[in-house]
C-alpha cells in the first residue's frame, strides 16, 4: 500500500512537473556572444552597423501578470489575464522585478540581437512581413497570452519580439528610456514592428502597451 502511494505520487509528480517545465515561461534562451548587424537595413538610408555583444540568457517570453504579481502583490490585473504580458509598470518597477530574481533588463543591442540574430533580418522570423495579421479588424491594445502568436519567433526561439507589447530596455535617449518591440493590432497601420524600431518613454510612465522581459 505504501509502495502504491509512493509510486502513484511519483507518477503524478512526473506528469505535473514535465509539462509544467516544458510550458513554463520561466525558461530562458541562450544568445551567443559576438558581432551582429544592428539597425535599419531595409531602406536606402540605412543606418546599420556591426555591434558586438557578450553572451546572455534572455527570457523566452515576456514577463506575465501572474509572474509579476508574485513579487509585487499590489499590482492588479483583470481576472483571467494572469498569462497575459504584464503592462502598466514603470521602468523602475521592471528593473526591480528583474533584480529580485537575479536578472536585469536587456540593453538595446542585447534585445535586438535576440530578436534578429546575426544576418540583419528586419523581422524575427525573416525578411518578409507576415501576410496573416495577428488580430484582423481589431484596433487598439488587446492582449493575448505570452507566446500566443506561433509565428512571432526569432532565430533563437525567443517569442513575441515583433508584437504583443513594447518592452522596456536599459537604453536611454533624451532623458527617457527606450522600449523595443511593438504591438500587433494597430488600426490602419502595420501590424508587426521591425526589430530595429523603438520608442522613447519617460521612465515614470506606465502604459497598457508597455511590458518587459529580463536577461541574465
Amino acid at each position: 500500500m505504501d509502495m502504491k502511494i509512493t509510486f502513484s505520487s511519483l507518477v503524478m509528480i512526473l506528469v505535473w512537473f514535465f509539462p509544467f517545465r516544458a510550458a513554463s515561461p520561466e525558461r530562458m534562451i541562450q544568445i551567443p556572444g559576438g558581432p551582429f548587424l544592428m539597425g535599419e537595413m531595409d531602406k536606402p538610408t540605412s543606418s546599420s552597423q556591426t555591434v558586438t555583444v557578450d553572451e546572455i540568457w534572455i527570457d523566452k517570453f515576456e514577463v506575465s501578470n501572474a509572474e509579476f504579481t508574485a513579487l509585487f502583490p499590489e499590482h492588479t490585473y483583470p481576472e483571467g489575464s494572469g498569462r497575459h504580458p504584464v503592462s502598466l509598470v514603470t521602468w523602475e518597477e521592471a528593473r526591480r522585478y528583474c533584480e529580485q530574481i537575479d536578472k536585469r533588463l536587456p540593453t538595446e543591442s542585447e534585445w535586438e540581437k535576440a530578436a534578429r540574430g546575426t544576418d540583419g533580418r528586419p523581422y524575427p522570423w525573416g525578411n518578409k512581413k507576415l501576410r496573416r495579421k495577428a488580430h484582423p479588424s481589431i484596433s487598439g491594445m488587446i492582449k493575448r497570452i505570452v507566446g500566443f502568436n506561433k509565428r512571432d519567433v526569432s532565430v533563437y526561439g525567443v517569442r513575441d519580439m515583433a508584437a504583443s507589447v513594447w518592452e522596456w530596455t536599459m537604453g536611454r535617449s533624451q532623458g527617457k528610456r527606450v522600449a523595443r518591440g511593438g504591438v500587433w493590432n494597430h488600426h490602419l497601420d502595420y501590424e508587426y514592428s521591425r526589430v530595429y524600431e523603438f520608442i522613447e518613454v519617460a521612465p515614470e510612465k506606465a502604459y497598457i502597451f508597455l511590458g518587459f522581459r529580463c536577461v541574465r
Binding site: S139, G140, M141, W166, I199, E200, I208
Partner: peptide
Amino acid sequence: GPYSTDGTILPGYDHPLDQGKKRRRIFGG
C-alpha cells in the same frame, strides 16, 4: 466597431490636421 475598450493612444503615426497632415512618429500616450 473594431476598437479596444482601453483606447490608449499606441505608438505609431499621427497625421495632424493643423500641420498639413504631415505624417510623424508618435511614441504612445
